[in-house]
């Protein structure tokens, strides 16, 4: 059976907990221009350990945050963004993400994904992030396993 090691991506963007939303927005947009994967950015704390995951959703939510969680006007949104730009990443990132190991099996990865909408799972060894496994990669591996034995549909 495939394991996290087979599925993980070793090239990913990183950001620190102490960076702010303005910098995060810049990183994501620049990464997008450079064709880097922006779906998940690994957040590292000051000790260099895994702290959480920053997704575009976190940045949108962080930038638009106000008391009412709703914006009636464009101005309302604009001022909220200005206010939120200095907010640091540790306030907006997704925390409590289960970490996995290189040897974690596909079946276990699938089960983890059933718990919450994690964009990815970090593969950690001794607190350091070795790579990340995207939900899409877990899905692809699962779909391939489930479908190849199936008559009528051929996958490469």
């Amino acid at each position: 059976m495939q394991t996290a090691e087979d599925l993980m991506t070793k090239r990913f963007m990183r950001i620190s907990t102490q960076h702010n939303l303005r910098e995060a927005l810049a990183l994501l947009l620049y990464g997008d221009q450079q064709n880097a994967e922006t779906a998940a950015t690994v957040v590292i704390d000051t000790q260099g350990n895994f702290a959480g995951i920053l997704t575009p959703e976190c940045v949108v939510a962080g930038l638009s945050k106000n008391e009412s969680t709703a914006h009636e006007t464009a101005e309302s949104l604009s001022s909220a963004i200005d206010e939120n730009f200095p907010v640091t990443i540790d306030n907006v990132m997704k925390k409590g993400i289960p970490t996995v190991h290189r040897g974690t099996s596909l079946a276990e990865l699938v089960k983890h994904m059933g718990q919450d909408k994690y964009e990815c799972l970090p593969v950690c060894e001794e607190g350091r992030v070795e790579g990340i496994v995207y939900v899409s990669d877990i899905f692809k591996a699962t779909a391939t396993a489930a479908l190849t034995a199936d008559e009528g549909i051929v996958l490469e």
Partner: peptide
């Protein structure tokens, strides 16, 4: 990501200059 691009547009944001 589309939303973030929209936000950047409203702010006339140049990502390259703002990189951490």
């Amino acid at each position: 990501m589309d939303l973030l691009k929209g936000i950047a547009q409203t702010k006339g944001f140049n990502p390259e200059k703002e990189l951490p």
